[in-house]
Design a binder for these strands. Structure first.
Length: 490
RNA sequence: CGGGAGGUAGUUCAGCCCGGUAGAAUACCUGGUUUGGGACCAGGGGGUCGCAGGUUCGAAUCCUGUCCUCCCGACCA
């Protein structure tokens, strides 16, 4: 049995890797645990990034940029924070190379040792709070609502393209507030922004919740998260928003003078999503024929494939296709007319691999009848449509695909939240069905750890607005006040 | 950091056991015929066999070391 599960996991790993590589999203790089994001994959990330950035600005945030390097001493100012990150930090110890006196290569110049080592940021709380200390004097300086788009490095033991890489791109918001209530409201607001983005743009339904103490961000008072379900039944943390209390304000001595002329520590939040979302997109929607990208963020929404028959047809079809391309672009749809020298069948397969939502095939026969064959990637349905008002037809279809992808993923998610009442059911469900398991938990870290030890499942979150429902813990049999969501996770 | 499998053409891999001229498929280039689901014919270019030592007349092949990749485990706010 264990063997079968292993091979199933391997199959999914292989499936996922193929999707990313053949879909031309990313490649492995020469650097351990890092990846090269290819133009197509980067265009996808840019679309995600631009939409998120707009949503951040609509909620009053501004962008800034802080340094890549963090003095070692900064990290040690917040005890829990260093505890959480110390094991995975890349450290800069020298600032110069020199020619190897014993050979042709270069060596690190031992004379160029840094007095204080620099840490390549695993996250930027410390370097940012060092600046905030100087920026915040009075309640008039608050709230401070700043986001940065950056790369961070976490030296993970084991990496997977997009889902966990040693270096990744992300955004991190860092805000400072006059009151705890305001900071909590900000934390929840940004969680809502993330949930809205992931559901409405990426077409992936999420469960909003709060982490247990053991899964909490290092240095946070509360960690809120959105959890998504992948097609192999594993959960993926798609975004987090942390209420940091006054931990970082105290560590970096950031005080403000309130209206009553009293010194107070500020209240903080931080929140982030990363290129991991691209991995989520791949895992949540793809099939055996390749990627399936949601229209709202697809780098390419429509591809037009000409079906030539002899050289005579070429100019007629090209002319018509160029006209349609122009028409669709004018309607705000991203289109590629692929008149390259490959055969139609090759192109069909190619754009399916890359997840282009809509394909239009155009041949002489179609033009004579004033129609085109339009195919949707999500369901693979094909039909003939009139060329009159094609941009409206395509726009409606793109919207329908977006909706259908979300509905399908939502139905899958709902089918995979299972309420269980005892330990046998818990194990059986996890093994045979996967997904989220809604179960009573006695609230202790010991039980959480024991369940993880036994099944690899962790508490993904305590859903927001969770019903209070007395019961007994599925593992320990002790009293419980509510159900929580367990799952195996990425 | 433990266990397993690998590193040979752009890619996927064969060759290795049993040492003796560097291979296939695919991709790429040229010409032609084609085009409604990954075309065909002909010709062509492309590799310090991961790296470093060793054994040998001779190493992709054997030995030692080392680096890297993938899978599993440990680790992973």
């Amino acid at each position: 049995m264990a063997k079968e599960i292993t091979s199933r996991e391997q199959d999914y790993s292989q499936w996922y890797n193929d999707l990313v590589l053949k879909g031309e999203l990313a490649d492995y790089s020469a650097v351990r645990g890092c990846m090269v994001i290819r133009p197509y994959g980067f265009a996808l990330w840019e679309n995600m990034r631009d939409n998120l950035d707009r949503m951040f600005k609509e909620t009053g945030h501004v962008n800034a940029y802080f340094p890549l390097f963090i003095p070692k001493s900064f990290l040690s100012k917040e005890a829990a924070h260093i505890e959480g990150f110390a094991k995975e930090c890349a450290v800069v110890t020298h600032y110069r190379l020199k020619n190897d006196p014993n050979g042709g290569g270069v060596i690190v110049d031992p004379d160029a040792k840094l007095e204080e080592e620099l840490i390549v940021r695993p996250t930027s709380e410390t370097i940012i709070w060092n600046s905030y200390k100087d920026w915040i004097q009075s309640y008039r300086d608050l709230p401070l609502l700043i986001n940065q788009w950056a790369n961070v490095v976490r030296w993970e033991m084991r990496t997977r393209l997009f889902l966990r890489t040693a270096e990744f791109l992300w955004q991190e918001g860092h805000t400072a507030h006059a009151t705890a209530e305001e900071a909590v409201a900000e934390t929840v607001q940004m969680l809502d922004v993330y949930a809205k983005f992931v559901e409405e743009y990426m077409a992936i339904p999420v469960i909003k919740g709060v982490k247990t103490a053991s899964e909490r961000f290092a240095g946070a008072v509360d960690t809120y998260c959105i959890e998504a379900l992948m097609q192999d039944g594993k959960a993926l943390q798609a975004g987090t928003s942390h209420f940091l209390g006054q931990n970082f304000a105290k560590a970096f001595d950031v005080k403000f003078l309130n209206k009553e002329n009293q010194q107070e520590y500020v209240w903080a939040t931080s929140w982030g999503v990363s290129t991991r979302l691209v991995g989520a997109l791949v895992m949540a929607h793809s099939d055996d024929d390749g990627l399936i990208l949601p229209p709202r963020i697809a780098p390419l929404q429509v591809v037009i494939v000409p079906i030539y028959k002899g050289d005579d047809s070429r100019s007629v079809i090209d002319e018509k296709a160029n006209k349609l391309t122009k028409e669709l672009r004018a309607a705000g749809i991203s289109v590629k007319f692929d008149n390259s020298d490959n055969r139609p069948g090759w192109k069909f397969a190619e754009y399916e691999l890359k997840g282009v939502p809509v394909r239009i095939a155009l041949g002489l026969r179609d033009i004579e009848n004033n129609v085109a064959e339009i195919a949707r990637r999500d369901t693979k349905e094909k039909k003939s449509v009139s060329l009159n008002g094609l941009s409206d037809t395509v726009r409606d279809l793109l919207e329908a695909i977006q909706q259908n992808m979300f509905n399908k993923a939502k139905a899958y998610q709902q089918m995979h939240v299972t309420k269980v009442s005892n330990w046998e059911e818990f194990k059986k469900t996890l093994e045979e069905k996967g997904g989220f398991i809604s179960a009573h938990w006695d609230g202790t870290a010991e039980t959480e750890e024991a369940i993880k030890e036994a099944t690899k499942a962790t508490i993904r979150c305590i859903p927001l607005n969770n019903e209070k429902e007395p019961g007994i813990c599925v593992f320990s049999g002790k009293p419980s006040v509510q159900r929580v969501l367990f799952a195996q996770a990425y």
